[in-house]
Structures are given as C-alpha cells and as structure tokens.
Design a protein around this nucleic acid. Structure first.
Lengths: 212, 212
DNA sequence: TGACACATACCAACTGTATGGTATGTATTC
DNA sequence: GAATACATACCATACAGTTGGTATGTGTCA
C-alpha cells in the first residue's frame, strides 16, 4: 500500500494511524505488552515511520494519552447530555450517557488513560502525567454543572463539586476494573446506577419530583 | 546466600519468596513489564527454581492472584471492623478501615488483582479469572453484613446487598486508578468519603443518630 | 518559470540485548 | 534411593531502537 500524499491522504497520516492503533491495542493488551511491531502492523507502516514520528515507545505512550484526551473531549462536547436547562439534569444525564455508551467489547468502551495510568504510573511518569491530565481535564468539564446544580438547589452540605466530579470518575474507572475482572460489562453499568442514586440523594431529589 | 532448609527456613520457601516478589513488583510495574529475572533477583533464587515451582510466567500470575486472595482474606478476617454488634456499623467500619489502610507508597496499598485484571483480562484469561475470584470473593465477605443491616434497618429499596458490595469494590478500585493517575493517595481516600456518605443515605442514617 | 536547497515522510534491513523457557547437574530430605 | 528443591549454563526468539536510504513536497531566488 502506498503512503498517503497531500493528494491522496485517504488513510490518514501514519502518525494518526499509529495513535489509533495504540488506542485499540493498548486497551486490549496493556502498554507494556503492546510492541512497536504490533503497532506498525496494525497501522500498516514500518518501524522507520514509527521512530520518525515518535522518539521512543515511551513518547508514543504520551502522544496516545494526548490523542485520547483530544478525541474524547470532542466526543463528550458533542454528546447530548448538555441539552437540559436544569444543571442537575445535565449531571444525571451525564451519568446516564456514561452508562449508555458501555456496550460491545470491553476494549471498545474502557478507558485508555485509566488503563495506562494503572500500569505505568511508577515506570513512566511522563505517560502517567499525560493520563492524569486527560482524566482530570475531563472531570473539570463536569464540575461546572455540578457546582451550578449545587447553587441552583441551594445545597450547602460539606462536599465540593470538584470532589464529586472526581468521585464520578472513580466510580466509572472502578466499574471498568470490575467489568474486566468479571468479564462482564454489566458490572460497570451497575455501579453507575449506584452513582445515579447517590447524586439524587446528594441533591435531595424526591420520588415525586423525579427528574431526568 | 544459601537456600533455606528444613533446619533453617528463615527466608521462607523459594516459592513463597517469588510470590511475595510478584506481589510487590507487579503492583509497581505491572505484570507484562515484570520479568522473570526481576522476580528471581528480588526473591534471590535462580531461574531453575522459578520454573521448578511455576510452569510459566502465566502460571505464576495465577498463583500470585491466589496468593493475594489467601493473604488478604486472612488480613481482613483479622481486622477490627468486624467488632461492632450493629451490622450497619460493621459496614461503615469496613469503609473506614479501607480508608485507614491507604497510606505510604501507592504500590503498598493498591490492589494486585485489580491492577493485573485491568492489564491482562484479554490476554491471560486464567489470570483474569483468578483475579476475579479474589475480588468477588472479597465482596462476598461484605455482603453478609450489608444484608444483615438491610434487614435490621428494614430497608426495602430496590438495591441488593450483592450489588452494593460490588459497588464498594468499584469505588475502591476506581480510587486507586485516580490516585495513580494523579500520583496522590488522597484521591483514593476522597472517594471513600463519598461512599461512606452514600451508604448512610441508603440506610437513612440521620445526623442525630450518627453512628460509627 | 525553473532550478536548487532543504525538509518531511516514509521504507527495508539490520543490531545488540533482554526475555521466557530448557536441559542437565547436584545437594538435601524422607 | 527416590523424590524434591534447587543451581548453572544455555538457547531461540522477540524486542526496542538504528542505519542508510528514497520519494515527495516546499521555500527561495534568479
């Protein structure tokens, strides 16, 4: 297969194809078990191309985390959970959305940066930090709606929007771990039901005025 | 260093030392990045000893998960959170205990089988299943107290003890992922505060009759 | 407009080493 | 003396990374 040119970039650049391959293969096998040859084969490029674009396998890991951050940011920005006018409804819609997209194979819905961080946190601080930026950057997008809902509902209890946003991520990430350990995606969905119930409790949503 | 004999087993058997090394190194570097030589060096044995006790690295992974299950079972059985007569107090004491033991280095308090399952779920089903047995075996030990508390408090809401026990594990595992990604153990503790609050809500614990 | 200089994007073949695993020998225990 | 529990030396392969190249685009200046 010829490489793409300005005139025929149909396959996307080699760099992008390598990052997509990393996203898919690392989610399946983990970072350490994913070889450079694996990635080159999947992306249909040679090792020369790999090391042209990435100084090392480590550097690819960082780039893959940043690629993940960029693509998921776009994905979540375009998602419909932002539609409700009521901020609490948006928060609950976020949880419902996270539950709804848990479908298909484990490697298709689990989180690249959660998986990588878990594995390389001590060995590759650069990758770990890139994963951290992706995760905590995402939690920050939830924080606004949570804080708005807090004020909207006059909640003054001793928890912060920041902390609840992080907890939401923890429940999602933990659900993925259990889903993998039990080889059953339903285990990830189940925890989101508990999270939904917790958030309703936090905002004193009664059965009567049930929302979302 | 001489190997231990029946007369001088001071270091424990080579097999046990290898399993302890696996517990420590895999939690730090992950399973794939942990080499057989790493383990032999840490356990101060040769490769011959390794492959005498384990048919393959894969088999060691399974044995390490089982070793983890056995040792943590003993550890939690001996823990003081079982003392309260009130079953709900025992549940909340469990959560408090899980929070209290989050201290020191990440690799010292994070979960071997959660880490391994996350990494090898697709590549090594035997290891994944051993990890699953460890995790879900542990959740089962909580289930009894949760169910007793449910009946004790006359809770009839539509959640099960089994499901809440699993959710508790998900929160713990997710907290570990965030703690690693943010390189800060406090992130794991934080989610346990939310879990504590959720359980109190579920059991309608009011501020006045505050327990645990 | 064309020619030159240079940069970018890739490829094929190779290298040194690390890795999981094996074959064989030996000390200890029962 | 037989099984167990190791140790030593070794092997084939897989691995990350390198080398030296080619094809294509791009800026520049006459």
């Amino acid at each position: 297969m010829s490489r793409p040119t300005k005139q025929s970039p149909e396959r996307g650049s080699a760099r992008t194809r390598l990052l997509e391959a990393a996203r898919d293969i690392v989610r399946t096998k983990g970072f350490a078990a994913t070889t450079v040859d694996d990635l080159c084969r999947a992306a249909d490029v040679t090792k020369g191309a790999f090391f042209h674009h990435f100084a090392s396998k480590d550097a690819l890991g960082v780039a893959a985390a940043e690629f993940w951050a960029a693509t998921t940011t776009g994905f979540f920005e375009a998602a419909p959970y932002h539609d409700p006018a009521d901020p609490l409804e948006r928060v609950l819609a976020y949880v419902a959305f996270r539950k709804a997209i848990i479908m298909g194979e484990l490697a298709e819905f689990t989180c690249l940066v959660g998986t990588m961080a878990q594995e390389v946190y001590a060995s590759f601080p650069d990758i770990r930090d890139a994963c951290g930026r992706s995760i905590f950057g995402h939690t920050a997008t939830l924080e606004g709606d949570i804080e708005a809902a807090r004020q909207d509902r006059g909640i003054t209890d001793d928890w912060t929007a920041e902390s609840l946003a992080r907890h939401t991520q923890a429940v999602i990430q933990g659900g993925f771990v259990l889903a993998k350990a039990g080889n059953d995606p339903e285990l990830a969905r189940e925890s989101l039901d508990h999270l939904n119930r917790y958030i309703r409790y936090l905002f004193h949503v009664t059965e009567e005025e049930d929302i979302a």
